[in-house]
Design a protein around this nucleic acid. Structure first.
Lengths: 222, 222
DNA sequence: GCATGTGAATGGATTCACAGCT
DNA sequence: AGCTGTGAATCCATTCACATGC
């Protein structure tokens, strides 16, 4: 097993063995470039980008070099062009529709979370097994539907991404439902080691582990 | 810089150079042991633990060996004793009080999130800069206070952990406020590279990067 | 001259495989 | 015989340092 880690990494192969660490940093670079473009900066070198945003210049160059010769030697990178390139590379030039399972505190918060409803992402529905919630909606107006409605939502339009925000005990079953429905990318918030399916890209965010890790530091940092 | 990563790692030294990857896995092991103990299992070997929860047996042994000879050769580990040991090691045998900055969707959801209000953790207050929210409370009853009330809350009782759930633009300022107030552990949800203080253990969870990383996989997987 | 792209060096996490204990 | 604890081997991400190109 290659680096399973607590926040486990997904299955499925990238096109050219671009590491997950690299792809995560691409998101960071994209954000930095957006800030620079807004500020009117046209060109930037890896070293000044590194300096400005507390990154490492060699790493920036190596990460970007995975996708061709994006810079100009002696000059640096064109901010606008590079931003557009990263946007395409990350697949953010098209709309990613998401469904969330679990209309609890976390699920509803994520439904309305700006980062989940902007720049290429949109939450289309929240599913919950509790009949008392059906027909209701999040504060932002995302409808809460019965789990059984998933096929209908899938028929009505492409869904690219599933989010699991149900209690640990229900997570595997929701995962399987999503996988069976043909969803190829899943973000899991339940604190369980999911038994993953091949062909389904899965990432887990374990909020509790972050707390416990901080607690460990407090307990052991002298 | 040693592995800053998108979800950046904090500052401050562990007692015996126990890696952050190891401490994250300790949380996982603790969960597994709790399940086993509830199921009445008294003893377990690293290989059966690995099998049962999709882990690696050598890694389990190596991780646990950081904290002394916890197992018995030829037998395995005592479930109950090991669970208690990990609980203490992770500092979960005492109560960790937390304050959350940002009473938006995310901040309020986290305030009531079971994982943030059980087994050693409790959210004592939510702070927000919007006067319209002061005096209100989360659904679960955590009061929303003005930022200026932080010193009073600190005087009233120990606060071990701060959570940043404000928009990106306000995150650094909240971070500095928490650091100035003497809080030594911070969990940040804002999508920014924080300028960190020495002596303050910081972890960042970047929800947006998880989405973008999944989007990348969808765009580049075959 | 200056900054990229990259082979080589480094550092560290994971896995292997076995010595040592029960 | 079985399982832990661990040195050795492996793998991989990061960093260095420089040849290459504008």
């Amino acid at each position: 097993m290659p680096r399973p880690r607590a926040a486990e990494r997904g299955s499925g192969k990238e096109r050219d063995a671009v590491s997950e660490f690299t792809t995560e940093r691409l998101s960071v670079y994209l954000r930095c470039l957006t800030i620079l473009e807004t500020a009117g900066v046209k060109t930037i070198s890896s070293s000044r980008l590194a300096e400005r945003f507390h990154l490492n210049s060699a790493q920036i160059r190596k990460d970007l070099a995975c996708f061709g010769e994006l810079g100009v030697r002696g000059v640096g990178y064109q901010v606008g062009a590079l931003r557009r390139h990263l946007t395409t590379t990350l697949g953010l030039d098209r709309l990613r529709r998401m469904v969330i399972f679990g209309a609890g505190n976390l699920g509803l918060a994520l439904s309305d979370y700006p980062g989940f409803n902007s720049d290429g992402f949109v939450v289309t529905a929240v599913f919950d097994s509790d009949p008392a919630k059906h027909g209701l909606a999040s504060r932002g107006g995302i409808p809460i539907l019965p789990n059984a409605e998933l096929p209908r939502v899938l028929d009505a339009g492409e869904v690219d991404l599933g989010v699991i925000a149900v209690p640990a005990a229900a997570a595997q079953s929701v995962y399987d439902t999503l996988a069976d429905a043909g969803i190829r990318a899943i973000l899991n918030f339940a604190p369980v080691q999911l038994h993953q399916r091949p062909g389904v890209r899965t990432r887990s965010v374990d909020l509790r582990i972050n707390l416990e890790s901080l607690s460990f530091s407090l307990a052991n940092n002298e």
